[in-house]
Amino acid sequence: MNKGAVILQDITKSYKTVKALTEINVSIEKGELFGFIGPDGAGKTTLFRILTTLLNPDTGTATVAGFNTITDYKAIRKIVGYMPGRFSLYQDLTVEENLKFFASIYKSTIEENYHLISDIYRHIEPFKHRKAAQLSGGMKQKLALSCALIHKPEVLFLDEPTTGVDAVSRMEFWEMLKKLRSQGITILVSTPYMDEAALCDRVALMQNGHLMAIDTPDAIIKAFGLTIYAVKSNKMFQLLTDLQSIQETEAVYRFGDVVHYLNKSSSFDPAKISQHLIKAAHTEIIVKQTVPTIEDSFMLNMRKSDSFNTQGNDN
């Protein structure tokens, strides 16, 4: 038996009118740090709820550490840690009381597994008599993670742990996850922040209940297939519309302080960009080939599946 692994086979789940998940197939190795990357409404939370035995799928089977989520849910509940979307803490309890309580429901104590959380808990221990409601977003996040870890889970499910948290706290959080992974815990994370994908071992890009791609971040970028040109000029606002009119343009979109330009043709000559822009009276033109990011890849995949979807059905 493939212990520690999470396997989803043909998982489909619908709510009244909405199809939340469509034929999800993915297998996650033991000890992997696996990311589900996608915007709100992609189906991440539904997927996590199925894996944590909170929801049953309509069709398909899912196993966690070899246990079936429907029939062996009790076994799964003993070995997983779960951090739901909103940091689920008792606002009126102190930091320490929260941690104590979550340890107690697993018949454990803070002392028993302190070594597991010490790296994370250290940051908030000075505030252990403060009520959870009075913590900043970053501290709440750390406390919630400590609470999910305190019973030494084999598999950790973190549903959007970094949403609404500032860039610095997010960075620190990912550093913690890397440490946890080195201790052999399988970690499944969901996030709407594309830049966090690069920090996972493998990721699944998710949109409208579909997995659009599953691979290592590097492989996803390698599979991108198109060349991206980062373009700058003195008239950034017009740049978007002017670039659109180049022949066989695949996509033009802003990306930070530059505009990313993609062309469908494999024999595209980047010199065309400058020529085109000079004609449109741009100056200070800079055109550079650039490495695609997960966000570029996500958008490419979205366009593909959009056109696929609109061909597939009429509503």
Binding site: G38, P39, D40, A42, E160, T163, G164, P192, M194, Q207, Y253, R254, E295, F298, M299, M302, R303
Partner: peptide, 10 residues
């Protein structure tokens, strides 16, 4: 734009 997909965000 919290939690919005990259295309919609743009």
């Amino acid at each position: 734009t919290g939690g919005v997909d990259p295309v919609t965000r743009r």
